[in-house]
Design a protein around this nucleic acid. Structure first.
Lengths: 249, 249
DNA sequence: TGTACATCAGTGAACGCGCGTTCACTGATGTAC
DNA sequence: TGTACATCAGTGAACGCGCGTTCACTGATGTAC
């Protein structure tokens, strides 16, 4: 399955000349340098002038490649989503399909590893919103849901294998779950699944716990803690148990 | 119990004159206006000049009241922590002490209500770190742990009432819990309790889920969802079940 | 109650900085004949 | 293969803006005698 959408080449008939190759290289350089600035100064302080300066370019030159500061932010966001989705999928796909527990754990660990390696990229997509900036939904929707799509597929496999955890333990009951989920199950993403409201709500709880575990570690929400690895493994197991029943049951 | 520390008045001998009263009023105004700016433009864009302008003061005048931009940020953070702690404690203290479930729920709901009412203040204390700024630990430690102190007391009451949830359900086992907790239990906060590593780890899992539920809603991490209230109630119940066993058990 | 002095609030000008974005331009690269 | 023209990358100057912080200052408020 393709993760990245196919590159839209306006004239794919001819091999690219010097100019076209150079353009791609400079575009990549811009994103690379911009990510460095993101890491050192945060999204709010991202500056086109500073990126141009680092590239040895005069400040106005960057407008050949980037429409505006906001557009550069959007590219960074989209890029981060794809990077995360690619890392998570790679880890997930390395696990045998019938080992449901290991698939969940692989997703969780890959998410955490990516976030810890690139905390500012994580903050960009899952942290506080950037002031005076709103990501255009049509560009972020697909990359932004790539990980969710993977989780939904796993959840449906758990259902098929009759390994779903007991929702009652979480206090999830049908009427409330239906309120939670609403018309969400009509989305095309769920078309090939047979998930119901209760199961999807379990999945949301598990995903919230997993994302909360990573968020709290990256943003140091819990204050200083002795052993981040051990805590994450506990929370990972707890999140897994929200959706997958232990083999003994 | 006092939540706010006693005001340190340098000369409490005399009643305050015009000057002293005015100073307190201006200081409060500064915080009020700064919070407005925080809400509209975010912490990174908080500007002393803009605050002074809104107060009808010339830009340098504000240095009579605030040492620097960073110090204003610190004050906002400390203030937000106390505000949150006060709101949570008030909700908690309205519940009879022996209704453990209701106490947990009251804390969770108060946290969420506060965060939704003041999302930017929430972002300031639990969101992505502000670039080029580090809060001084000696000023944030006490207010930053006030909610945790409350949760620890509740957790110890749950233990005393023999209502602790089964840690096995979360996959929490003693050796791993000890690695998670490390020397944390030696902190003065736990001196009057009899909590062990496993129970504290359960508490951490529950708190992570609760905080994750609020964070994911305030930062829209899960994308657009039909019914935030219903989802939160589910997650609140799930977090409660991490530490408190249902009455039937 | 009145005077002399110390303290403090707020002013206005200035320093040096960085920002996003526009515009007319020079030279190099690519394309059509 | 060579020439004429179109396209594009990058330059340099400029616009108007806002920022944090310092400094010498005026005038009002408070205090000691």
């Amino acid at each position: 399955m393709e993760l990245h959408p196919p590159a839209t080449d306006t004239d794919a008939t001819r091999p690219p000349g010097k100019r076209a190759r150079n353009r791609l290289a400079v575009e990549a350089e811009i994103l690379r340098v911009a990510r460095e600035h993101l890491a050192s100064d945060g999204a709010a302080a991202l500056s086109l002038r500073a990126v141009a300066r680092d590239l040895g370019m005069v400040s106005s030159g960057i407008y050949r490649y980037v429409e505006s500061r906001d557009e550069l932010l959007t590219r960074l966001i989209v890029d981060s989503y794809w990077s995360l989705a690619t890392a998570v999928r790679a880890a997930h796909d390395a696990i045998p399909a019938d080992d449901l527990d290991a698939r969940w754990d692989a997703i969780g660990r890959a998410l955490r590893a990516w976030a810890l390696a690139r905390p500012h990229d994580f903050a960009l997509i899952y942290g506080s919103p950037v002031p005076d900036y709103e990501a255009p939904a049509e560009r972020t929707e697909e990359p932004g849901t790539a990980v969710i799509v993977l989780l939904v597929a796993l959840l449906d496999d758990v259902r098929r294998a009759a390994r779903l955890a007991d929702p009652d333990r979480l206090g999830i009951v049908a009427p409330r779950a239906e309120a939670v989920v609403g018309t969400l199950l009509d989305a095309p993403m769920f078309a090939s699944t047979r998930l119901d409201a209760v199961t999807l709500t379990q999945g949301l709880a598990a995903w919230t716990l997993l994302l909360g575990a990573v968020t709290s570690e990256v943003f140091a929400q819990l204050g200083p803690l002795p052993d981040g690895n051990a805590l994450f493994e506990c929370l990972l197991a707890a999140s897994r148990r929200c959706v997958i029943a232990p083999v003994g049951d």
